[in-house]
Amino acid sequence: METSTRDEREAQTTAFLRVRVGQEEAHYGGNLVDGARILRLFGDLVTEITVRTDGDEGLLAQYSDIRFTAPVRPGDYIEARARLVRQTRLRRVVELEAHKVIRASPEEADSAGEVLDEPQLVCAATATTVVPHRRAHMATARIPTAEEA
């Protein structure tokens, strides 16, 4: 009978979203989408991570090391991923990345797009979330194996 350690469970706790950015989200000149749109995706991913680890949405305490590395425009498809990298009694630290996987190509035609050979990093960050004490206590309790349940 195999049991997983807490470190192994943390390494396996991930979340993923893929969305198409709509025309209504253009916010700046040059038809650019604001970085807050990507941070909202990150917030949803962090929430999913804490629900998976603690059965509670938790409270996002901070973002750190935010780097916007490429523009996002309406029609682009963004793939965002999260991975739990550290867990303490009340805090969860999550690494986040968002990549453009399809680029809108309005210069070719209004509805043209291009699948990128290599996803393009558009944003990376680290988030820290806090979970309520009652849920955090439950998350650190021993998890029974399938045979024991």
Rank of each mutant, 00 (worst) to 15 (best):
L90H: 11
R91I: 03
R92F: 00
V93N: 04
V93L: 05
V94K: 01
V94D: 07
V94E: 04
E95M: 09
E95V: 09
L96N: 02
A98C: 09
A98P: 05
A98Q: 04
H99C: 13
K100V: 06
V101C: 09
V101H: 03
I102Q: 08
I102T: 14
I102R: 06
R103W: 06
R103L: 01
R103S: 14
R103K: 11
A104P: 07
P106F: 01
E107S: 14
E107L: 13
E107T: 15
E107V: 12
E108I: 07
E108T: 13
D110T: 13
D110N: 13
D110W: 08
D110F: 06
D110A: 15
S111I: 10
A112T: 15
E114S: 12
E114C: 11
E114A: 04
E114K: 08
E114Y: 10
V115F: 02
V115Q: 14
V115L: 08
L116V: 01
D117I: 01
D117F: 01
D117C: 02
E118C: 12
E118K: 13
E118W: 03
Q120W: 01
L121P: 04
L121T: 14
L121C: 15
V122E: 04
C123Y: 02
C123T: 04
C123K: 01
T126W: 06
A127I: 01
T128E: 15
T128D: 06
T128Y: 02
T129Q: 08
V130I: 04
V130H: 00
V130E: 03
V131P: 02
V131Y: 00
H133A: 11
H133R: 11
H133V: 05
R134F: 00
R135M: 06
A136C: 08
H137M: 15
M138H: 10
M138W: 00
M138P: 05
M138C: 01
A139F: 00
A139L: 00
T140E: 14
T140S: 14
R142M: 07
I143F: 05
P144K: 00
T145D: 12
T145F: 12
